[in-house]
Design a protein around this nucleic acid. Sequence first.
DNA 1: CCCGGTTTGGCAAGCGCTTGCCATATCGGT
DNA 2: ACCGATATGGCAAGCGCTTGCCAAACCGGG
Lengths: 322, 322
Amino acid sequence: MTNRDTATLDDVARRAGVHPGTVSRVLTRPGRVNEKTAARVQAAVAAVGYRPNLAARQLAGGKTSRVAVIVPDITNPYFAEIVQEVQLGARQRSESVLVADSRQAAPDELSAVESLSPNVDGLIVCSPVAALGTVRDAADGRPIVYVNRRGRNVAAVHVDQGAVVTVAVDHLRSLGHDRIAVVRGPSAFWSAEQRSRLARKLGVAQLGPVSPTYDGGLALIDEIVDGGFTAVATFNDVTAFGVLGGAAARGIRVPDELSVIGSDNIPFSAMTNPPLTTVDGCARRVGRAALDLLGSLLAGDPPRVVVVDPAMVARSSTGIVS
Amino acid sequence: MTNRDTATLDDVARRAGVHPGTVSRVLTRPGRVNEKTAARVQAAVAAVGYRPNLAARQLAGGKTSRVAVIVPDITNPYFAEIVQEVQLGARQRSESVLVADSRQAAPDELSAVESLSPNVDGLIVCSPVAALGTVRDAADGRPIVYVNRRGRNVAAVHVDQGAVVTVAVDHLRSLGHDRIAVVRGPSAFWSAEQRSRLARKLGVAQLGPVSPTYDGGLALIDEIVDGGFTAVATFNDVTAFGVLGGAAARGIRVPDELSVIGSDNIPFSAMTNPPLTTVDGCARRVGRAALDLLGSLLAGDPPRVVVVDPAMVARSSTGIVS
DNA sequence: CCCGGTTTGGCAAGCGCTTGCCATATCGGT
DNA sequence: ACCGATATGGCAAGCGCTTGCCAAACCGGG
């Protein structure tokens, strides 16, 4: 039983004694209609409980009131937090969010962009691995905000990747470590490349690249031991968990014998044993900024880049060198 | 530049030498059109790269090719996995998924259902806390599949909550424990109530209820110690992490002095120290089943309930009683 | 060959909204 | 009072698609 009580523009118009077109203007073109009339219309809108039909609106005008978020892995809390934040912000603007999981595969990424684009006002693409040009083409003209990826003349919000490395290495050095290793992430990631460059500049040893997973970290332990490192900074928290696991399996005490520092500061990083020292990736701030940036793009502003500063979160997986 | 001038039904019709209405039928009413003509139309569709305009389709016919998933917390990997699985299945059916995070609050839950409903074919609502009647009303006639919540005459897929408790308690008893405590979840959750009932029936002590968070578990440690329990089964993995954390803080060795068993089997449960024994909530299976069930509802089938059996995942946070 | 029944495909009426184009009202200035 | 500029709101043409209705074509049996 479909009780389609959905009031239409015409209902509102009739009740307010104006033309439907006028109602439409009141709702979408502030200032275009006389204040007095507008008030009358608004009253009618409230009275009949009018809710615009998005499909009709999109058909006629092109506006969808929807945004898409594409993440490499929704199961990773870092991205889940971004999605959550975007969703929260979108709700405030009466927009809804479509999400797609690309499984870090360029083809999935592109097909997601391509199939979602026609039905959203804009997209937020997180840590894309596909070439930015192909993404843009797949988006069919819809504005895009990239997260943790930069490019020529594109809107983006990203954590300062150089600072991530600097902050971690500084922390470790201040603890007296000088046998420090930085773990490389998959080279398909822009962030991984940025960090690698900085590590090189800092003259810090690099391990990997390994896949940014638990197993990736686990597999690293031999290399760490063999290299005689006393501290290691991983690509992300999950990888750090792997290192922690590997250390535990080998009976290596953390932080006494090995200091481990992650990246992202996902909620779980505070729940491990020992709690993980990590560099906060500010997921919520990033998510919020991405949505705001998309909003400004939609408003016609030129592409901008927002850089957010990472912050050290010192917990118990790092300690003074023994 | 933009060769995406989106071919329309008319373009296809012209190219195939038929009426637009016929093309529409070929695309949406299998068998309604002569096979020969249909083939010609399909060829034309492929030739011009036709992609149906969802907005127009929804306006005219009501079908949206979209489903909504509402979760209490997308940041919890259990739900993230469900969303991921739904998204995966939806992609195969060329549907997209809208997600909303209700923050476990009934009002948010209802407003999400209400605002999403008009623009989706159906909804999957996970662990709702609101009264099912109000949810149904908010959905304005759209079919709903509930996850981990049962109700009279509604479609649902849920883990057998009784079995979750049974399986955990059996595991613990087989290890020799007889001072076992089961942690209650928030009574707003159907699953929490079901488990509580079973625990009572099994004659097992219950602790809490506590919020299903790390802090909730952390706070439990005193009660556990004071109660002299040698084993505790928590409401979910995150709560178990809290208990693990509390135990570590008090110098209580797990599993030697205390066995801890979680529930959900989120990926992180394998990454803790010690790795957490848990009852698998089969997120992916649940997500998949929910989407399939929604599909059958959409096809006109009557509401059905799918029960999935939980499975023990024995790891290292449980051991024989000392 | 004829006839009623069944396919098949054309036709056009919308679905609810936005927006360019106009006609009319309004208004300040002279 | 008169005039042009400007603010206001009506009008209707679609946006791309689905679908009920109907006519033409087709089928098999008598």
